[in-house]
Design a protein around this nucleic acid. Sequence first.
DNA 1: AAACTAGCGATTGTTCAACAATCCCGCAAT
DNA 2: ATTGCGGGATTGTTGAACAATCGCTAGTTT
Lengths: 226, 226
Amino acid sequence: MVDDWLSALESERASMGRASASEKVADALRTRIIEGDLRPRTRLSEERIGAALGVSRNTLREAFHLLGHERLVVREFNRGVFVRALDHDDVRDLYRFRRILEVSSIRQAAIDGSDLTRLHAAVDEGGAAAAVEDWRGLGSANMHFHEALAALAGSRRVDEAMRQVLAEMRLVFSTMSDPRTFHEPYLEGNRQLAALLAAGDHDEAERALLTYLDRAEAQLLAAMTT
Amino acid sequence: MVDDWLSALESERASMGRASASEKVADALRTRIIEGDLRPRTRLSEERIGAALGVSRNTLREAFHLLGHERLVVREFNRGVFVRALDHDDVRDLYRFRRILEVSSIRQAAIDGSDLTRLHAAVDEGGAAAAVEDWRGLGSANMHFHEALAALAGSRRVDEAMRQVLAEMRLVFSTMSDPRTFHEPYLEGNRQLAALLAAGDHDEAERALLTYLDRAEAQLLAAMTT
DNA sequence: AAACTAGCGATTGTTCAACAATCCCGCAAT
DNA sequence: ATTGCGGGATTGTTGAACAATCGCTAGTTT
């Protein structure tokens, strides 16, 4: 095709000038939350943050709505917005939901032959990040792996549900002191899972995924102070 | 317990005065959309609706955000918000998602013994509605049935995902001319499914559910003009 | 006649400032 | 220890203003 670059441009449009003011503010806050600068339970004052970012309260409000939609913050009527704090029940529920989504994705992959390129790309991304000891990058690669896994279901709604879940997972990770401990062990697990899927052994892949998730959940619950 | 009524009060808190203006506006619009008064593709003019409901554009905008979050409306940049119009792909994806959620709920029910009271209540509600030929009420009862079914998973996130899906389903039903055709056949299916679950025959229940959903999807797709 | 372009009106996106409503905190009173 | 009551601070909501963009019409060009 002569206009191959057209689709490439199309994909970049989201990060271009199309970002409205409220979306840019939401991006900034999202980064601060994920990076752990804004700890859970922190109240986000409209006045202070609006002044800091140089936007009006109304714009800030729309940004808060976006973040609330992603469950990164919670809005309490007449009290303000707070950085979300997840408790043990939340983590348990997140993993319950992940089991449903990811297992069904693997089963769907067993039915219709699936494209595993994204999955392998995520594995490679994680390997590269671990090689240079970029543990936060490894965490992102891990997210991409599970996003690609969920994509095997071939459903837009599953994709978005998974994105939502992973955003909340970042919220948990942000409270952890040592990212290496929580991401490095799963690099090998991802590689193994991808290999099982490539080999077509979906039953074993499902078992491996479940033990994988069980272990991750237990480790996270144990590390949570609250 | 002596303070049994406390939980009853707790459940009513949501419908109290705690609703903000934007939420009340969103409620009103949601009803109009679900009832079919606002047809898909209808453009929701900020000026006109704001005047009709007596709220400012800013408040209306927040309500639009809420409805957009529920996928009942879509926002097109610089063009306005429109009542969502679902196409065949949307319906297929909705049912793919429903299969994932509802099947996993049944399997979860097979593991931990589950409380089926809500399920039976929904069946009874449907029977009562059909007895007085309240087809829209039958539709609601049907929704409640599947909501109760999803609740068997015991996951807040599954509950909300299911609520979201059912809201979108209403969007499809609202375009249908004869609600009876699309709800009455499933009254018996619901009753049967509840009986199978009560009997503990989860495998058969799963099979019944899948054929149920396949049939519903096919019927809906066939009835969609667009 | 058909197609293209410039301009105009209408609508949305964004910001601002002000007022009303509500909550939080400390203090007093029972 | 619990209840009732301000005062101060923060959020909820409004209305207006300006900029940016879209859809349409009219006029021009080929």
